[in-house]
Design a protein around this nucleic acid. Structure first.
Lengths: 336, 336
DNA sequence: TTGTAAGCGTTATCAG
DNA sequence: CTGATAACGCTTACAA
């Protein structure tokens, strides 16, 4: 089935058929109806490849997901997926390892797929600074800030990680905690982790609380397993802390399990606070105190910015979505 | 950058350039090297659209994900994604609502995207029986059995849901439980739920245990929230049961939360058993007793079958991947 | 071994 | 308003 067949069936030329199919003016009602009817009857679909080849303009949106164990990205991809599915752009989703270079991968895929625009979930500034100049279509970095970078086509949507982490610590402090351990990511490779770490330090400083990185901080990936291991490592030194702040809900859950396996109760013996606001947190026992970032907001803003850049040539921007400190069962008031 | 440019640069004709780029024989070493060098130097990439248009053969694999709240599918998509990313086929992932018709959606997308093959996550036989005849490329239905259906291009990879559910109940029975409530999906629309339900009945019958659907069964989607609600509904009649079998881990987690909110302890007061073997189950408190299906196996088998059908014209087959009954904390021995 | 040229299904230009 | 026709970048007979 091609427009040629449609042309033969209706008696109109391929030119006219094409115009009808593309809702162009300068077609008579009669022709329009005839073509539309024939197309409908045969379930005709334009051949995307031919169309794109001719128009020289791509149609898909590329999504690069960095790291697969963080459930936040899973939800984010789904949310983005359902937003984009209802738009005219097909999604190409590419999952890469947490250790791979997301920008290089994106460059590679851009050459191959020539997408209209790109969404990158997770990443770090260093990789962008090094390789992003090879990317020329609109791109939105999601969950990481890219505002310092000198690229006119790079937007970002993120939570104010530093402030949010500081508020997480503040919340624990307000509950009476003074000895707080932190589990998070490797600050040298993850900007997110670095910012959240700095936020912690901000808060510790503000309250004059001692924090010794070597003693009170353990790093790993954002996954259940690494949260578990990091907490075990912390516990191996003896439990001097009354609270743990985990930089991701998945790590917090791993941490709680580790505490429990160590014979400690949450929150009676140790309070735990997470970060992300995953659905599971609401159902976990105990309910997870956390910093919630709305997956829906993050997804919606990212997609909207990208579409604006693609469709209206909008300027790149760097947005911050709101977060909320969720008071929940896993963090309790000390001595109450 | 087109092969024409490469042709001009090297002095060879576009035909020769094309042959080199496609690793065809009948090209001199000299020509091959010259072209490859030029391509390398300029970072040249063949234009996929033009190639496909000419060859009339598609290259992508379509993944249709039905329902977004079931974490199992989330992990599955990721697992499939990382398997396929390392193959020459781009993935097109489409998320649809749990209530949409996955086959119609697939038909629609096939017309548009003309994929090489299709992976459908979740679905029901009725939809396949009604509309699958419109699909002519290899397709694998994942997590649902399609063996009864008369389509030569339809494979399926699934767990033996009926047997697995029966073993879940058996496990609870072996722990001394006699009054077992079940939360699951709507059997009239979800084959998976129907099979698991029948498995439950098999086991109940085998042990002569009374089970009254109206009293002991509540349905909802496979999500935390629906597991929670279904359990609330069960509890609203008074708690006559000592154990709950949930047809999905996400429902089991919702169930545990509901029990807890009702002042009941798990497993001391009520045992809970799930189904799926999600990662979270290992970290949940209590660790979730479940039927584990290996996401990796499911993904690996599905992708392998699909690739075999696509690449070697392999025959459709219906496979069953192993499952395991996981004895874990959330299900305890009655009266011990 | 290499070059030439005819399409693949569309859209866009240009004449009618 | 409509119809020819030339591209788009590539592969593949076929000819040399």
């Amino acid at each position: 089935m091609t427009i040629k067949d449609l042309s033969a069936q209706t008696g109109y030329s391929v030119g006219t058929v094409s115009r009808v199919l593309n809702n162009q003016p300068n077609v008579s009602q009669k022709a329009r109806q005839a073509v539309l009817a024939a197309a409908e009857a045969s379930g005709f679909q334009l051949n995307t490849m031919a169309k794109q080849l001719r128009q020289q303009r791509p149609t898909s949106i590329l999504v690069v997901v960095k790291g697969t164990s963080n459930e936040l990205f899973g939800s984010l991809v789904e949310s983005i997926g359902s937003l984009v599915t209802r738009s005219p752009y097909p999604l190409i989703v590419d999952y890469i390892d947490e250790d791979d270079n997301e920008v290089r991968q994106a460059v590679q895929l851009c050459r191959e797929k020539k997408p209209l625009g790109i969404l990158i979930l997770g990443g770090n500034k260093r990789n962008f600074a090094a390789d992003f100049h090879n990317i020329h279509q609109p791109c939105v970095l999601v969950t990481n800030d890219a505002s310092g970078l000198p690229f006119a086509n790079l937007s970002s949507v993120t939570t104010d990680d530093r402030l949010a982490a500081a508020q997480a610590i503040e919340h624990l402090v307000s509950l009476g905690h003074r000895r707080i351990a932190v589990v998070g990511g490797d600050q040298s490779v993850s900007d997110t982790s670095r910012l959240r770490y700095e936020g912690c330090l901000d808060a510790f400083a503000r309250y004059g609380i001692a924090f010794d990185e070597a003693r009170d901080y353990r790093a790993g990936r954002y996954s259940y397993a690494h949260g578990y291991r990091a907490t075990q490592a912390l516990l191996a030194q003896g439990q001097a802390f009354t609270a743990i702040f985990a930089m991701a809900d998945v790590m917090a859950i791993g941490a709680i399990r580790a505490l429990k396996d160590h014979g400690l109760r949450v929150p009676e013996d140790v309070s735990v606070m997470g970060f992300d606001g995953l659905n599971i947190g609401e159902y976990f026992v105990p309910k997870l105190a956390t910093i919630s970032q709305s997956v829906e907001d993050l997804a919606a803003r990212s997609v909207e910015i990208l579409r604006d850049c693609i469709e209206s040539g909008g300027k790149a921007r760097h947005e911050t979505v709101p977060f909320a400190v969720e008071w929940k069962e896993s963090a309790r008031c000390l001595g109450s």
